[in-house]
């Protein structure tokens, strides 16, 4: 994957048009159309808020907890959308792969760009909620770009790896569904990490070494409250670098698997 080819004119046109099509098709034929991209996560958030915050009284000691929760679910939705769309994309676009020749990673990236657009719009909602909730805007808000980029690269690596295997072994889709469920509880989204820390410091540290947890906590830290526990302010030793290493590792093995297997996508998809 050398840079001139990634950015060449034909590939750019293709990427743009495929993304546009994905975006249009997703909400075709529904009455509220694109509004669902906003409504669905907000409704999911409302359920989680009622169950975990109002009923089970999680996070009462965290300032702006509702926004804190919404921020977490927004990023989580982004991650799951990015990975599952990316994993499916090669099979969904199999028809194209069988008929024209183009760099295959374009289908993966185009399927994820829709998720990125959705994230952008949902983040605007998070910001509006934050302002209503009395969070003061600061320059540190801009820093959320970095953890979001990291989260995206992690999901890209996963999509490359799992998506390329999924072409041959469709079992991956089902396995991934289960892993996503498990991961949801392994990441401090609905529960504050302090709750885990008060039971077991080691468990809390282990949870924060997960890149997804690290990214979500970082965004919460930059966006909502400096009281958010992040990997960096919770683990005081060189192992804070582990989440970043996991992301780099995932991207490397994902790209490698994708490059090797993509020759045969047209035959197997």
């Amino acid at each position: 994957m050398n840079i001139p080819r990634v950015l060449n004119r034909k590939n750019r046109i293709l990427l743009k048009e495929l993304t546009k099509t994905d975006f249009k098709l997703r909400y075709q034929g529904s009455l509220l159309g694109y509004l669902w991209a906003l409504l669905r996560p907000l409704m999911m958030f409302a359920i989680l808020y009622i169950v975990f915050s109002m009923w089970l009284r999680f996070g009462n000691d965290i300032p702006h907890y509702p926004v804190y929760l919404l921020c977490g679910t927004t990023l989580w939705n982004f991650f799951t959308e990015c990975t599952s769309q990316g994993i499916q994309s090669i099979i969904i676009r199999g028809d194209l792969l069988r008929k024209i020749s183009f760099p295959k990673y374009i289908v993966v990236i185009s399927s994820q760009l829709t998720a990125l657009i959705n994230l952008g719009i949902n983040l605007i909602v998070v910001v509006i909620f934050a302002l209503i909730n009395g969070v003061m805007p600061t320059w540190s808000w801009l820093l959320i770009v970095f953890p979001i980029l990291e989260l995206y690269l992690f999901s890209l690596g996963l999509a490359f790896l799992l998506g390329s295997i999924n072409v041959k072994y469709r079992d991956i889709t089902s396995i991934w569904d289960v892993i996503v469920q498990a991961l949801f509880y392994a990441v401090p989204i609905i529960y504050p990490i302090q709750m885990v820390a008060s039971n077991s410091l080691l468990a809390a540290k282990a949870i924060l070494l997960n890149p997804i947890a690290q990214c979500i906590q970082d965004v919460r830290y930059f966006l909502i409250t400096k009281e958010a526990v992040t990997t960096w302010n919770f683990i005081f030793n060189p192992s804070v670098i582990i989440p970043v290493l996991i992301v780099i590792f995932m991207l490397a093995i994902g790209a490698n698997s994708f490059r090797r297997r993509s020759r045969y996508f047209a035959e197997e998809a």
């Binding site: 099509t21 028809d95 194209l96």
Partner: peptide
């Protein structure tokens, strides 16, 4: 290889 590659009935 085929006419109308990528044609989508919903568009």
């Amino acid at each position: 290889i085929e006419l109308g590659v990528g044609f989508n009935p919903e568009l």
